[in-house]
Simulated scan of single mutants.
Amino acid sequence: MKKRATVICRKGRRILLVARESKWALPGGMLKRGEHLADAALRELKEETRLSGKSAKYLFDFKSKQKHHHVFYCDISNRAKPRPNNEISKCRWVELDEMRRLLTSTPTDDIVRLASQKRKNGRGK
């Protein structure tokens, strides 16, 4: 199973999503050999959105059918504007309620739901 650093960035009730072709997903990607998980999360965020995370806080692991997601919360400046880069065609802040109307990857929906539950229960950002 492939290991992946997956990143959640929030602004109030909005979450940062990126699009590869037609599907929306959370920023993130595969680890490089010898790379620490938190470093991979920050690198992937910068590679895909040109945003520099201040830190990457580990939240939880999530296993989908094909990938093992190591999920991190990245704190970024409120003034920072994401811009698509590399394989990313679009990126934008999306209201949590709006996610239901978007074509997203199945792990994205599950990870966002789990992160929101943990946040409500006081165990996460």
Rank of each mutant, 00 (worst) to 15 (best):
K2W: 11
R4H: 09
R4V: 12
A5P: 03
A5C: 04
T6E: 01
V7C: 07
I8E: 01
K11I: 07
G12H: 00
R13N: 15
L17I: 04
V18D: 03
E21P: 06
S22R: 08
K23D: 06
K23P: 02
K23S: 10
A25Q: 09
G29I: 02
K32Q: 14
R33V: 09
H36L: 12
A41F: 04
L42V: 04
L42E: 06
E44W: 08
E47P: 02
E47D: 13
R50V: 01
L51F: 01
L51R: 02
K57P: 05
Y58Q: 03
Y58D: 05
F60Y: 03
F60E: 07
F62T: 02
S64I: 05
K65E: 15
K65Y: 09
K67A: 12
K67N: 12
H68N: 14
Y73M: 08
D75T: 15
D75H: 14
D75E: 15
I76V: 15
S77G: 08
S77D: 15
N78V: 05
R79L: 14
K81D: 10
R83N: 09
N86W: 11
I88Y: 01
K90P: 10
E95C: 07
D97A: 11
E98D: 12
E98V: 06
R100L: 11
R101Q: 10
L102G: 08
L103Q: 03
L103R: 13
T104S: 03
T106P: 13
I111D: 01
R113D: 14
K118C: 11
R119S: 14
R119I: 10
K120Q: 08
G122P: 02
R123M: 14
G124R: 00
